[in-house]
Design a protein around this nucleic acid. Structure first.
Lengths: 193, 193
DNA sequence: CGCATGCATTGAACTAGGACAAGAAATGAA
DNA sequence: TTCATTTCTTGTCCTAGTTCAATGCATGCG
């Protein structure tokens, strides 16, 4: 049950069994049916979720009412609106929604603090996880600015080979920052080659 | 001399004077003339820099040889290619270059580890700094995808009011992900209002 | 001082991608 | 099974932004 998350958190920092025990004892297990919104814009994000199974999307809604998907989180990924709400005490600007039936491990900000107090080495592990997210996001920013829609789509397929089967095309379009119609045209063009 | 950086690092975590003393004793002070490249693509990034004075840019070069500016760092900002190189042991894909004569405080990865060993609370401070960078980058990604060039430029002016006087227009264009010519057209249109 | 290099502006022609509309195909609920 | 809803495709027209000149302006440097 815990091996999956322990492997993830231990990727860059090595923990003692006792430390992992503390960690595991503070996690809350939760299942959530698909199409459930876990966080609405304007709410405080009071969780950090580790995806054991399933798929969620995190998205903004822009000034014209269009959704822009910031992140797909599948098995072994973390999702939260950690960036603003927890430390800034500002309400979230993003939505988090399950796309499939999901199983999570959840942390509240308070239990996270409790963890850091009891086992300070986790501070380091979460710092490195944060760094990795930053790297991924910077890379995406670069791709978004410098690549054509076709290039972005091909790279997406390479990077998330299973996701294109699991989620609707228009979600992928929204993630890539292009219209669903144009993605469809790209796909037919690619299929003809 | 140290009050500026101490204020910055103490923004989200409160430190004892002794802790700050350790911190300050590990910093390396350095001045660098303008137009100096601090990090080339393919090198390992072996520093984290706090800008005391001056302005630097961090950029990628894309497949067609175009520069894409990821970050401007001015006074009180941190800059590094922390994301990949330090923990991943991968060579950097970015360039870091001074745009003005600069004063920095520098950390090497080793002295950073030394700091964490001697004063573990800094681990927390750097985790939160990292979170803030992630928030800023996510926000930029959202803007890049969902806003028009004019909106992006106006928001840039609002967010970095001094920067448009300090750096060349074509750098701003590169940061916004638009061509220098089109930015010029936007500026004349705005000026006419 | 004069020259060279880089920077900003403007215009004309072009294109990647968007908006809209309408139909086809898939999914799902009762 | 049927009807409804959502998703995907395809076509046409349209526009925001690019590319490629050409020109004028700064600026730094010998």
């Amino acid at each position: 049950m815990y091996s999956q998350i322990n492997k993830n958190i231990g990727r860059y920092v090595t923990f003692e069994p006792e430390e992992l025990e503390i960690f595991n004892s503070l996690l809350e297990y939760k299942t959530v049916p698909k199409k459930t919104i876990l966080l609405h814009e304007g709410e405080m994000c009071n969780f950090e979720a580790f995806v054991i199974k399933g798929c969620v999307r995190k998205y903004y809604i822009d000034a014209n009412g269009f959704e822009v998907i910031l992140q797909f989180a599948i098995e072994n990924a973390w999702v939260s609106d950690i960036s603003f709400s927890i430390y800034e005490d500002k309400p979230s600007r993003v939505y988090i929604e399950t796309l499939e039936d999901c199983e999570f491990f959840l942390f509240s900000p308070e239990t996270k603090e409790e963890l850091f107090a009891k086992a300070p080495k986790f501070e380091r592990a979460f710092r490195i996880l944060m760094q990795r997210s930053l790297a991924v996001t910077q890379d995406r920013l670069f791709n978004t600015i410098s690549k054509s829609a076709t290039e972005k789509y091909l790279e997406f397929l390479e990077h998330y080979p299973t996701l294109s089967q699991r989620v609707a095309q228009h979600y992928i379009a929204s993630y890539l920052g292009i219209s669903a119609e144009f993605l469809s045209k790209i796909r037919t063009k690619i299929a003809k080659l």
